[in-house]
Simulated scan of single mutants.
Amino acid sequence: MKNNIESIIKYLKGSNDDFIVTSHISPDGDNIGSTLAMYYTLNKLGKNVYHVLDDNPPQNLKFLVENMNILKSEEVNLDSYNIIALDCGDKNRMCISQKLIDNAKKIICIDHHASNDYYGDFNYIDTEASSTCELVYNLLIEYEKKENINIIDEDIATCLYTGLVTDTGNFVYSNTHPSSFEMAKELLSKGAKKDTIIQKVFQSNPYNYYKLLGEALNTLDVVDGKIASITITKEMLKRNVISFNDVDGITPYTRDIEGVEVGILLKEKKENEVKISLRSKNYVDVSKIAKSFNGGGHIRAAGCTIYSSIEDAKKKIVEAVVKAIQGDKNE
């Protein structure tokens, strides 16, 4: 079922089953913000709800989950339950066990990735939306109107605002629309803690982050003036005592160079497993590049994993980006 908010609201209201809220691997602001907002909402509606994620949030988002009990899949023992998958464009990237996915009564998918194939029993997908948090916001506003109740409180507003500002780069990226500013205005009026969010997300990087950044910038490589890449090895992470999930903020340094169209961050998770983050500026659809490596994402921001050495992964992804740029130029 595609893009039917009313059907989702009707199901949420009528179901007496438990709910699991979850998202994609390698959590980010939209991931955490949308899942927490939905968790708090279902709690307010009197539902039994569990936040399940088999990964750890990055340091700059831990302020959102300080009082939250995030479960791992092995801690969950439920008979009849539904899954709400938020900000997860691919069923295979859901950050819970396959057993939980297979045994769910229904899957509700709320997402804004272009690569989403409508894998849910209920789907609310809008690839033009700034963030999944914007879709959750739309759903909650509609729920409030239909049921004549107030749902969005200070906690929910703070979660939704976090996802909005992180996925829009604090309203800088091309996915920022008039609706994004309208949403921000409404969330602020409902108590979203803007100053706390900005300080925690953008202004509280640990000292070790900057030590790693200095080392990472020494790997900066520019190809044909159009492609820039930075490489982070597992040894660099270990040497600088910083976790894999805490360095995605380095990605924009690849894109934000004059003349560069596509930026690439390569992060070595373990031997022969490299996460690739792709960013483009004007015309290259990086989601197509990511999809060719079984990844996905958005036109201007996407990612994938290459199971090879970091040197080979760099060679493969740069070659794919070169072809994409040449193809776009010829069109």
Rank of each mutant, 00 (worst) to 15 (best):
I9N: 14
Y11D: 12
S15M: 08
N16E: 13
D17C: 09
F19P: 00
T22V: 07
H24W: 14
I25W: 09
P27A: 09
I32T: 01
G33A: 11
S34F: 06
T35L: 07
L36C: 10
A37H: 10
Y39A: 00
Y40N: 11
T41A: 14
N43S: 08
N43V: 03
K44P: 01
G46Y: 08
N48R: 14
D54S: 14
N56I: 11
P58G: 10
Q59A: 07
Q59D: 13
K62Q: 15
V65P: 00
E66H: 00
N67I: 07
M68F: 09
I70K: 01
N77D: 15
D87R: 01
G89I: 08
G89Y: 07
M94F: 03
S97L: 08
Q98R: 13
K99M: 04
L100N: 11
K105R: 15
D111V: 11
A114Q: 10
D117A: 12
Y118I: 01
Y119M: 07
D121V: 06
N123M: 03
I125E: 02
I125R: 10
T127G: 04
S131E: 12
S131N: 05
E134L: 05
Y137D: 02
N138H: 04
I141E: 09
Y143F: 13
K145T: 13
K146E: 06
N148K: 12
I149A: 03
I152D: 13
I156V: 09
L160M: 14
Y161A: 14
G163E: 09
L164E: 10
V165R: 03
G169Q: 12
F171P: 01
V172T: 10
V172Q: 09
Y173R: 13
N175P: 03
T176M: 01
T176S: 07
S179T: 13
M183D: 05
K194L: 08
D195V: 05
F202W: 04
Q203K: 15
Q203R: 15
Y207I: 04
L213E: 06
G214F: 09
G214C: 08
T219Y: 04
D224A: 11
D224V: 05
I227K: 05
I230D: 08
T231H: 04
I232E: 04
T233F: 12
K238G: 11
K238F: 02
N240L: 08
D246A: 03
T251D: 06
T254A: 09
D256F: 00
I257L: 12
I257F: 00
E258F: 04
V260H: 03
V260P: 03
E261G: 07
L266Q: 07
K267M: 12
E268A: 02
K269F: 11
K270Q: 14
E273S: 15
I276Y: 04
S277Y: 02
L278N: 15
N282F: 13
N282P: 00
A290Y: 07
K291V: 00
K291I: 02
S292Y: 13
N294V: 03
A301Y: 04
A302S: 12
G303F: 08
T305H: 05
Y307A: 05
I310R: 06
I310S: 14
K314C: 02
K314I: 00
I317K: 03
I317P: 01
V321M: 08
V321H: 03
V322L: 13
K323Q: 14
A324E: 15
I325W: 09
D328R: 00
